[in-house]
């Protein structure tokens, strides 16, 4: 195989070496262009999801009266932007804290350490994480354990007696503030 090629390069079919050199260069160039043309859409399709920068959408979490003042309750909702193909994973939850004296804080259930679902304990007024033991106070600030910061908080607003949060992405260290 390799011997055959070597012989051909030596000029076994009578073509002039310079002409073949040109042909080789043209071939290499065409292949190069073709490869670039093919790989841009292919690689693009692979990495495109990383560059989606859609803003979050307002989600209705129900009437504010559903959240007793001074208590923190779990609100379940369907992630905006999800599609039927996501199945159950499009369902999401958030911790809604209805503060005494008015106002809401809405926290992601995802621990700021590595994203496990934190659980609220009404009695000790703490959030605890089942994975690595992160603990947060009722205002979302870090109490103890490995989390580098407090709980992620959704942007929220109240309109016509209903509570809305801006959601649509998995909360993470570089996502929300």
């Amino acid at each position: 195989m390799s011997e055959g090629c070597a012989q051909c390069q030596g000029g076994c079919d009578g073509e002039k070496p310079s002409r073949r050199g040109v042909m080789f260069k043209i071939g290499a160039g065409l292949m190069g262009v073709g490869t670039v043309l093919a790989s841009v859409p292919l690689a693009g399709a692979l990495v495109a999801p990383g560059f989606v920068r859609d803003g979050d959408t307002w989600v209705d979490l129900g009437a504010t009266s559903d959240y007793p003042e001074g208590e923190t309750r779990l609100a379940k909702f369907t992630l905006p932007g999800s599609n039927p193909n996501d199945g159950e994973t499009s369902r999401t939850a958030a911790w809604v804290r209805s503060m005494s004296g008015g106002g809401f804080q809405v926290f992601a259930v995802n621990c700021a350490h590595l994203g496990c679902p934190v659980k609220w304990f009404q009695q000790s007024r703490l959030f605890m994480c089942p994975c690595h033991g992160g603990v947060y106070y009722e205002d979302g600030s870090r109490a103890s354990g490995p989390p580098p910061r407090g709980l992620f908080e959704y942007q929220s607003k109240v309109e016509n007696g209903r509570l809305f949060i801006a959601a649509g992405r998995l909360p993470g260290l570089q996502e929300s503030t």
Binding site: P68, E71, T72, R73, Q122, Q123
Partner: peptide, 10 residues
């Protein structure tokens, strides 16, 4: 004595 019912946050 904590409230255990889901409707009460339990």
């Amino acid at each position: 004595m904590p409230a255990l019912a889901q409707s009460k946050g339990g």
